[in-house]
Design a protein around this nucleic acid. Structure first.
Lengths: 219, 219
DNA sequence: CCTTCTGCGTACCGTACGGTACGGTTCTGC
DNA sequence: GCAGAACCGTACCGTACGGTACGCAGAAGG
């Protein structure tokens, strides 16, 4: 995705390899394991090069976020005509992808890092993480529900509010719990189904069965 | 884990004052501002006393969590008969309280601290925070929706799942965003209204108007 | 008045970090 | 083949942390 190519430094292969090692250290040992000396040792490079490439520690962290974001691409297939079933499928696929991304080791580690740095006044890393990591997935979902509305399958006034509803139904407090160290869900797919069913019940134009919501017997 | 009252060390007034200073430092400057020397200076006590009272740094952090949790008590008023309006009011009150708690400076700072410490293997602090900080509010909500079901006002199979739905509708990704340093909502009450309206639409037994959901014109 | 205990203030220790400097080695362009 | 850049490995510096030790002041109690 070339878009917003402006603030993407595009690191060299060598630098990307170093960033990969940095992510590995971070995932395996948390922030305290990510030291300049440790990274230089793990990546077989010199500390001097680290400072030459990334400026200082914060620059390194920012580069790690950019590097990770550059690996996550979301495909925008917006061609086909939407049917109710197709919309549901796409929403569920989005929900599963979202849950999978949020539960990923690297995502959790980077979020922990940025949150640990943040204060009341805000956080440079936090902003970076939200912009780089979130924009893609937000765009994908917004495009999808917008398309659903244009196809007459969804109804809402505020697309942003509807998206936040969908997000909340999918994720609930799971993200924070995982950030705090709790294990993830056993079955992401089931959670995705239930969330999308609820979302369609709230914002769908066609009558929805409540079965998947767990409001009727048998499960 | 045994009874809840047992593992509450009940610190002395002096110690509570020190913990209060510790929370202040943490809120104002993040984890890096909470050093033993800094705390001793701010609280006019000696480092030796800190180690005598709390053992080590992790003990201090745990004590801070316990201290903060001991300040937040939720009242359980479960007497009265529920009507649909009353249930809605109580749910909205819960939603507003939840949003207010999550947006609190101390809550955010403690969550940032615990998340920053956490790794893949889990976190002692994270467990503590979830147990001490969350149990109260979880219980209150569970009691409420359980009561709603017994009164025939709500329907669901799995109370836990229903509660998570409610939680997700109320909070969405707001908690993580605030943890990352973004400002909170402008109007918690409005968010509470919309979340409860959606929840009642999903799990209420009486027909709900969709007005508050933003699916009809005019707002 | 004397003793004992608690706790404050300070000095101290070992360690480990972020960041810099330098000698030696490989790679690149001409 | 050579000059210069890029880079590695290591040593080094200042700092600040967690944790410990010690001297001294009050308060409690007899």
């Amino acid at each position: 995705m070339r878009a917003d190519a402006t603030d993407m430094p595009e690191f060299s292969p060598r630098q990307n390899a170093v960033l990969e090692q940095a992510l590995r250290l971070l995932v395996e040992g948390g922030e305290k394991a990510l030291t300049t000396s440790g990274l230089a040792r793990a990546a077989n490079c010199s500390k001097e090069s680290l400072y030459k490439w990334f400026g200082d520690r914060e620059g390194l962290l920012a580069a790690m976020i950019a590097h990770q974001a550059s690996k996550v691409r979301t495909f925008e297939r917006s061609g086909e005509r939407l049917t109710a079933d197709l919309l549901r499928d796409h929403l569920e696929l989005f929900a599963r992808d979202l849950l999978e991304v949020l539960a990923g080791d690297v995502s959790l580690a980077l979020n922990r890092l940025a949150i640990g740095q943040a204060t009341r006044e805000g956080s440079k890393l936090g902003k970076l993480l939200l912009e780089h990591g979130r924009r893609q997935i937000d765009r994908r979902a917004m495009a999808l529900i917008d398309q659903g509305k244009r196809a007459g399958l969804l109804r809402f006034d505020n697309a942003d509010a509807a998206y936040h509803t969908l997000y909340g139904l999918i994720v609930s407090d799971l993200h924070v719990r995982m950030l705090l160290g709790e294990p993830g869900l056993k079955d992401n797919a089931r959670q995705a189904e239930r969330a999308v069913a609820a979302f369609l019940m709230l914002h769908g134009t066609q009558k929805q069965s409540a079965d998947a919501l767990g409001v009727s017997a048998g499960r």
